[in-house]
Structure formats: structure tokens, C-alpha cells
Design a protein around this nucleic acid. Structure first.
Lengths: 179, 179
DNA sequence: AAAAATATGTCAACATGGCTGACATAAATT
DNA sequence: AATTTATGTCAGCCATGTTGACATATTTTT
């Protein structure tokens, strides 16, 4: 490995002591003003899911269970097909995790009244309780964040997130969220 | 299974035809005003990562590769320990994926000039190019979202995300983002 | 009534990317 | 000289995603 024999005056702080790499100039927000938002989304989401992740551990569940529990509680009687469309996963992936939730008594399946091929999904009392437990820390986190914003800023946060969603999915998401 | 023998007047649309489940009343934003934001974060993040996910497929890479490529390009010469602290994963998880990126010529490792135990990470030209390719669709998505907002609303979006981050991580994130 | 389409479930195999635990090595620090 | 630190590596486990093929019950169509 070649040693350092040339040390040009570096302009950036982070790479000041490392002018030997193939590329020592950082990708900066100067070039791409959107980078801070990209990274904020990453860090915010990383921490946003950390609370329920910890809670789920004590039940032996994971994020997949969380998503199912949440949307079944939000839409009791939801069809399997609609849940698949929300989660954008395969029925095999869903089936495995859903089965665990049914077996452990958090979700119940009932045949559809009109179409008896359907197995509509409902939360049990335990399922509702779990949903609320998982919801609580996230709601607190959101609430605290919103509390520090003006009404216009709050609207900005909401509109920003709505526009990050695929344009083709936006209406459906708006309907699901209930606005 | 008990049949329906009582059909109370339902107020919500979604559960109107399904009053037989253990719980047919939906968890609604009426009880928890933060629910729309919780779901918006979920849907926004789901779509936000879909563009790079598709792009990565053609390289045989996954999200783990994306994160490494991104932060190494943002901070050329970063130490392995610092990258681990950003990603919050174990060195074994990082090592496996990082090795693939080094072997395929997207990232180069160089010993630290002061402390030669360190293996500082730098992007190669190919690594920078890949980083920009992955960045592009996300930056466009963010840019389009921001374009629809007023300055105050933009500030709201940014502040909201900053506050979603763990309080204990907020300063570090601010430094990483460069503000 | 028979045929086709639909909603769902299931079996099997595989890939990614997390994890833990144990151990190795080289370099810096004490 | 002993210890600590930065990093790597081997081995195995787990969660959760994938594809493909096939089964079943029910509804719709012909």
C-alpha cells in the first residue's frame, strides 16, 4: 500500500486529513440542496420505529406484525387483498405473520357476509390493546414534534409527507388516512 | 360461531357492514389526532425508498449497500466505527455488505494516517457515480414536494423531521447533515 | 349445470440483512 | 511488557421479504 507523500491544502473539514483516497471531496448539500431532507427522513424514520420495535420484542413480534396489527385496528373487517395492497407485500409474506397473530389471539378472521370466500380481519380486545400500546409512544413523539410548530408549519409537515408519497397512490392514501 | 342478532346503527363507513367481529369500531384519528402523521410517515417512507430499491436491483445490491454508499460519499474518509454509529447496526452486519462494495470497486479502504489501525472508507469514482444515481430520484421527489410549499411550510417540514429524531441524537444528526 | 374467474391459503425453496458469541490481529496506549 | 482499541472474521440463528406451483371454496359467467 502506497504511503502518503503529498498533502494538498484541503478545503473541507471532514477530509482535511485524508487527501489520499480515490475521492476525498464529500458529496455536499451545496450540489444537492435536498440532501438534508433525504437524511432527515432516514434518521427520523429510524428513530420513529425504534419505540414499537422495542415493545414488540417482549411479544416475540417484529415490524411485520406491527403493520398488520395497526391497519387491522384502523380498518376492522378489512379484506386480505386490501391489506396486501396497503403493505405492498406478497400474500405468502403476509400469511406467515398473520397466522401468528391469529394463533396468538390478537386478530380474528370471519367470512365475509356477502362474499363468503373472503376472510375479513378483525382485532380482538387483546389486538386492540396491543395496537394502542404500540401507537402510544409514536403518537407522543409526533405530538411533541407538532407542539413545537406553528399551524402553518404543521401544515407544511403534513403536505410535505403527502407529496413524498407516489402521485399514483396519493388519493388512496388520503382515503385510508381519512381526509 | 355466534351469528348476528343485533345490528346497532353504525356511525363509521368502513365497519358498517361488519358488526360481527370481536371489535368492529375502527381506531380513528378522533381518539388519536397523531394517527394521520404516523401513517403518512409510513407511506412516505415506503415510497421514498422505492426508487433506489429498484435501481439497486440492477447492481445486485440492497438497501444496506445504499446506506453505506451514501454515507461514505457524504463523508469520505469516515471511520468504520463512525459509520456503525450512524447506521446503528453491528460490525458483522456492516462487514458483510461493505466487503461486497469494496470487492466490486465502489469503495476503497485506506489506513488512517495518524492511527494506522483505522481503515478509512473512501468512494471510488464508480462509487460516487452510483451514489449520485441513487440520490437523483430521491432528490427529485423531495424537490417536487418542497416546490409546493411556502418557505414557512418548508421550515415546518424540516423542523418536524428534526424533532422526530431522538432528542439524544438530534445534535449529532444536525452535525452530520451539516447545519 | 358446467366452466371460468376470484379470494384466499399453503408448501417449498431461497435471499437479504439483521442478530449474538467467540476469536484473531495489528497498532496504539499505558 | 501488558493492555486497550479498531477492525475483521467465522459460524450460526432469526425475521421477513421473494418466486413458483398448487389447493379449495365460492362466486360469476356462459
Amino acid at each position: 500500500m502506497a504511503d502518503i507523500n503529498f498533502k494538498p491544502s484541503e478545503s473541507t473539514k471532514l477530509s482535511a486529513n485524508a487527501p489520499r483516497g480515490p475521492l476525498s471531496t464529500p458529496l455536499s448539500a451545496t450540489e444537492r440542496a435536498e440532501i438534508p431532507f433525504i437524511e432527515l427522513l432516514y434518521f427520523a424514520y429510524r428513530d420513529f420505529i425504534s419505540d414499537p420495535d422495542a415493545e414488540l420484542l417482549s411479544y416475540g413480534f417484529g415490524r411485520a406484525h406491527h403493520r398488520i396489527i395497526h391497519f387491522v385496528n384502523r380498518h376492522p373487517g378489512i379484506r386480505v387483498a386490501d391489506l396486501l395492497d396497503i403493505l405492498k407485500i406478497t400474500k405468502q409474506s403476509l400469511g406467515r405473520v398473520l397466522k401468528q397473530l391469529v394463533d396468538s389471539g390478537f386478530i380474528e378472521q370471519l367470512p365475509g357476509p356477502q362474499d363468503r370466500r373472503q376472510r375479513l380481519l378483525y382485532p380482538t380486545e387483546a389486538g386492540r390493546a396491543l395496537s394502542l400500546r404500540l401507537l402510544d409512544p409514536q403518537a407522543r413523539r409526533i405530538g411533541a414534534a407538532l407542539a413545537s410548530l406553528s399551524p402553518a408549519e404543521r401544515k407544511g409537515a403534513e403536505e410535505f409527507l403527502r407529496h413524498i408519497v407516489d402521485a399514483s397512490e396519493r388519493d388512496k392514501v388520503a382515503r385510508l388516512i381519512g381526509k
